[in-house]
Design a protein around this nucleic acid. Structure first.
Lengths: 342, 342
DNA sequence: CAAAATTGCTGAACCGGTTAAGTAATAGGT
DNA sequence: ACCTATTACTTAACCGGTTCAGCAATTTTG
């Protein structure tokens, strides 16, 4: 005679029943819409609170509303760079009441496509994309599904909302700093061939030389691959070739630190005998002996601006800017000094 | 006379129409269910591919299916510890085809509740929780909504699936190591009062002393707060009080490094005059001079095991274990040596 | 004071899928 | 050849919300 009671999660219909109104009225109250008398409104609000009811996000989203979440697609989370991006995005989104869907592509083209497919199946209201292999197909897909998106650190494209770091200006700043210290023989260490950021930093280097009428010396421009080891090798080579510069600008901290240890090993004093500047402000750069002067990227701000821009787009507003090009900052530490050589 | 064509995203109904079948049949094909002839199946698959159709996740979830995403709630993402947790969770979930919803509570009780409320509104199929203020209400809420969950680094509770690091064993291991090097006067530096992990490490310390019949010396147990500065202060105090131990075990690397710099400043050689061991294997610990011997937590594995367990739960399977207590690992570096004093 | 506008609420369609139940056609068993 | 299973597919209800159209009661307006 007894019926089995299956505990079901409470729905809008239940609330409606309890309040003796229709589902519609409850919905209006939930969404703060007018057309409901104060009495009824209060009653419904009370019941909602008492029964601890939470509208189902899926149903909401399906019925045309938003999910209140933004997606973030990044290659990886293994270093602080990406962790900081996440932080920035998370913080800014949180401020606007959005939550974060995180996707990592592991720098794997296949996985990247998978991720995008998932995205286009609706889940986040918009997406921030930072990835290696994105091409026109992806932006096309996103547009087709009318999913707002913002790219991070993406080559300038007038059609695409983007937030990037001004790597050229960063390279310029680094080189300029060395020049201001009296250096004229300044070496540059490249990152890997394909790296856009390294290239931009190189162009900043060139620009600074040019502006100060310092002749370009091909022998002082060296190939690296962003890894510590390559900085070490490059430094060795410079020493062997007896073509020593008075300063080195490496396209990232890792290589700068590699070079530093090579020079120290060969008896050079830093910064007395040679100045070194890096790029990125990785954690390691503040622990080296001497601590590494470097260029800091506003990573957190990058994430946070991207989120702000995206949320504007989601809400149909026009973001302040279509393209942000963020300035870097010079961190003066111990690895650079006035040029002592003739 | 011309009609405005509004580009609509393609739905299962569209596919059904194109294939001259019902929505149901398409659904069966999508979900690889039987009851569809090979011919029709292939035809539908072709059409799906050609039209680049992706089922709407929301609709799916609403109709009783899953979202294929797991939630992760953590206090913050500002350091590599959490970044590694994320990595572990992301990687393991990815392997099973699950995506990640990331929530951070910023160690803020209010925000924490907000996050949980959002969760209970259905979005992820399950959730991994690592947070400060969780209490019984939260686990009750999750249970009420039938959302599977796993706790990270949570005090043992027989009722709750959990993955934790064996901090006691870690503390034991660290202390034991120092003892094995001949040390008898071993200081311990606490983390903040409330920190469960610090407390557990302390108990490991006690256990090791006891097992080797080394008398407990109250004066060698000092209060810190996990910050570098506190390690520095504590070391100063030891020196001033002329109650020098031959070794120090700090409850985390930061404090160990702080202590290290204090000792160095006062002319002590490490490890010749005093051995130091930390806990956590933070990045900084491998850059110090000398490099810091420390206890490594299997953070990545923690995240990955939690994800595995959660996904089992989601799929109605019984996870291998209800409680994982992961072992730490000793990283022997340069900051510890045989005890030289009498 | 009648007509028009407004307010407060309801009913029902809809979002895009899943799935139980039903049906027609084909295959299998004796 | 006749009855029963099985196969292949469809119909329709349902998930839990939102929102438009409609209606009655009340208020405003000329």
């Amino acid at each position: 005679m007894s019926e089995k009671v299956v505990s079901k999660t409470i729905t809008i219909a239940d609330i409606a029943k309890m309040a003796n109104v229709s589902k519609a009225t409850v919905s209006y109250v939930i969404n703060n819409k007018k057309g409901v008398s104060l009495d009824v409104r209060k009653k419904i609000q009370r019941i909602i609170k008492e029964s601890n009811y939470k509208p189902n996000t899926m149903a909401r989203a399906l019925a045309g509303k938003r999910t209140n979440s933004v997606g973030l697609i990044i290659p990886d989370i293994s270093d602080m760079f990406y962790a900081n991006i996440i932080r920035g995005v998370e913080k800014a989104s949180g401020k606007f009441g959005y939550f974060l869907n995180l996707f990592t592509t592991h720098a794997n083209p296949e996985k990247e496509h998978e991720v995008f497919d998932f995205f286009t199946s609706s889940m986040s209201d918009g997406v921030i994309v930072m990835t290696y292999f994105v091409g026109k197909e992806v932006t096309k897909k996103l547009r087709q599904r009318k999913i707002p998106f913002v790219f991070l650190d993406f080559p300038y494209d007038d059609d695409i909302y983007s937030v990037s770091v001004d790597n050229l200006e960063g390279g310029f700043k680094a080189t300029n700093y060395l020049i201001s210290l009296g250096h004229k023989k300044i070496a540059f260490v490249h990152g890997p061939e394909a790296a856009r950021d390294s290239k931009a930093r190189y162009h900043g280097y060139l620009k600074a030389l040019e502006e100060h009428n310092i002749p370009y010396d091909e022998d002082l421009v060296l190939k690296g691959d962003f890894l510590r080891q390559s900085g070490f090798k490059v430094a060795k080579k410079l020493i062997e070739n007896k073509k020593m510069p008075t300063a080195i600008f490496a396209a990232n901290d890792q290589m700068a630190l590699g070079a530093m240890s090579a020079f120290k090993k060969e008896g050079y004093r830093i910064p007395e005998d040679i100045s070194i500047i890096g790029f990125d402000n990785t954690e390691a750069s503040s622990f080296s002996k001497p601590t590494l002067t470097t260029i800091m990227q506003p990573i957190f701000e990058m994430g946070s601006l991207a989120a702000k821009t995206l949320i504007s787009l989601i809400n149909g507003k026009t973001p302040e800017k279509k393209h942000y090009l963020l300035k870097t900052r010079l961190l003066e530490r111990q690895s650079c000094s006035y040029c002592n050589s003739r």
